[in-house]
Amino acid sequence: MTELERHMLKEVAELDSLPVGAYNIRSNGKSAARNTTANIDIVTKEEVSGIDIIIKPGTKNQSVHIPVIISESGLKEVVYNDFYIGEDCDVTIIAGCGISNCGGSDSRHDGVHSFHVGKNSKVRYVEKHYGEGTGKGKRLMNPTTVVELGEDAYMLMETSQISGVDDTIRETRATIGDRSSLVIHDKILTDGKQKAVAKMFVDLDGEDSGCDLISRGVAKEDSYQEVILGINGNNKCNGHAECDSIIMDRGVILATPQLKAENVDASLIHEAAIGKIAGEQLLKLMTLGLTEKEAEDMIVKGFLR
């Protein structure tokens, strides 16, 4: 592994070395390293680019790392990763994509992740997107996540994109079964002329199903963000969506709530707030010795924590 690849791996998956447990590291369009365990199998797809991750029923306290790194300028790829999580599992999946583009051509990674979560299973999914590089070529990522939660399942998604990605459309679609719930914490920071669109659509199909979609965004400089949080309450269910954004400089943020209730027992709530950093927050931190700029950075960092 090159020094650059190591650095990118650290940025997207917080890995200093090869992880413990199952993993598949994809570097510049090829599988660079893979490990499977007795309970977690990783199989290369034959018809399209990507892998199947198969987790046996009853697998507890295990993790899978599937980071993707691109350091070749001009590389464009669409990758399909399917996760089959058996019943009664409790697992953590750490994905993430890092693009380092020092060349003149655009680099692009479109990852399509599908999760099939079995009855009574619990999944934590962490996805971090990161871009860097001095080249004129853009760093583009368009992740699509499809979630199917069976009965009595729970999934927590922690997704983030903290600067560095020029253009992104992030789409998540989920269907939630009986007594299952999905929680999404999405964090995004854009600056320069970056553009980011995040769309989340959840169908609460199951009885007593629920979801909590929390989006936090910071748009700096001339960047643009669009957030659409949609919940369909198709059964007796509880859905909550919250979109909270800080706008700075000449940034633009468009937040669109979409709630649709098709059942009299569906309870759906949406909250959205966009505003600049409160003046009194800056003043408070300045009384503790920070300059205005340092105070601003600390507030943004905390907000996106």
């Binding site: 936090r216 927050q281 408070k284 503790l288 507030i299 960092k301 905390g302 907000f303 924590r305």
Partner: peptide, 12 residues
């Protein structure tokens, strides 16, 4: 006192 989303007592 000023409230902050995300910042913790320990941070301040």
């Amino acid at each position: 006192p000023v409230r902050f989303k995300g910042l913790r007592v320990g941070d301040l």
